[in-house]
Amino acid sequence: MHLLWFRRDLRLTDNEIVTLASANNAAVLPFFIIDPWFYQWVDVGKARVRFLFESLENLDSNLQKLGSNLILFEGNAVEIIQELTQQL
């Protein structure tokens, strides 16, 4: 299974990582990690948080059209990735 970690580029089309992960009909786990430090940035206001979550909802909707869905995690990214790789 390929882990597809969406970080900044939340598009499915014209996204090289999406193309590579889904090559040869491989199983893919698309996910996004909300790291607690995100909310601590000085320039992160309500509008930016709202835009992020609207973008994540749009990505999930597009994934659902393809028979998948976006998994959201909240916590330390390194720990989450380590746990995912151990489980899979």
Results as ranks from 00 to 15, higher is better:
28 V>Y: 00
36 P>M: 02
55 S>C: 03
77 A>S: 12
31 F>N: 09
23 A>C: 07
17 I>G: 06
43 D>S: 11
69 N>H: 15
41 W>C: 07
13 T>E: 15
79 E>K: 06
40 Q>C: 04
58 N>A: 14
73 F>K: 02
70 L>V: 06
72 L>E: 14
6 F>H: 04
63 L>H: 01
39 Y>W: 12
19 T>Q: 09
22 S>F: 01
29 L>M: 05
85 T>I: 11
35 D>L: 04
49 V>G: 00
74 E>C: 13
12 L>Y: 01
39 Y>N: 08
27 A>N: 13
13 T>I: 09
29 L>E: 05
34 I>F: 07
46 K>N: 14
19 T>H: 06
7 R>K: 15
55 S>P: 02
40 Q>P: 00
83 E>S: 13
12 L>T: 00
61 S>F: 14
71 I>L: 15
35 D>T: 10
44 V>W: 04
7 R>P: 09
42 V>Y: 10
12 L>S: 02
8 R>S: 12
59 L>D: 00
50 R>V: 05
66 L>S: 08
7 R>A: 14
63 L>K: 02
34 I>L: 15
70 L>Y: 04
32 F>A: 07
36 P>N: 02
33 I>T: 12
29 L>P: 00
21 A>W: 07
18 V>S: 03
30 P>H: 05
1 M>F: 08
3 L>V: 11
38 F>T: 03
3 L>C: 09
19 T>V: 12
47 A>I: 09
69 N>E: 15
49 V>T: 07
6 F>L: 06
35 D>V: 09
57 E>A: 11
35 D>C: 10
49 V>C: 01
33 I>D: 12
83 E>Q: 15
59 L>Y: 01
14 D>W: 05
22 S>Q: 08
82 Q>M: 08
17 I>L: 14
2 H>F: 10
53 F>D: 09
38 F>K: 05
62 N>F: 12
4 L>Y: 01
75 G>S: 10
70 L>G: 00
48 R>K: 11
30 P>W: 05
55 S>H: 05
28 V>F: 02
42 V>K: 12
78 V>T: 12
84 L>D: 06
18 V>D: 01
64 Q>W: 02
37 W>S: 15
37 W>R: 12
20 L>I: 09
80 I>F: 06
56 L>W: 00
18 V>G: 01
85 T>Y: 11
38 F>N: 03
56 L>T: 01
10 L>M: 02
68 S>T: 08
72 L>M: 15
2 H>Q: 12
20 L>A: 06
77 A>Q: 10
47 A>R: 12
47 A>D: 13
7 R>M: 14
67 G>I: 01
15 N>S: 00
68 S>W: 12
6 F>S: 04
85 T>S: 11
77 A>N: 10
43 D>G: 05
61 S>M: 13
85 T>H: 08
21 A>L: 05
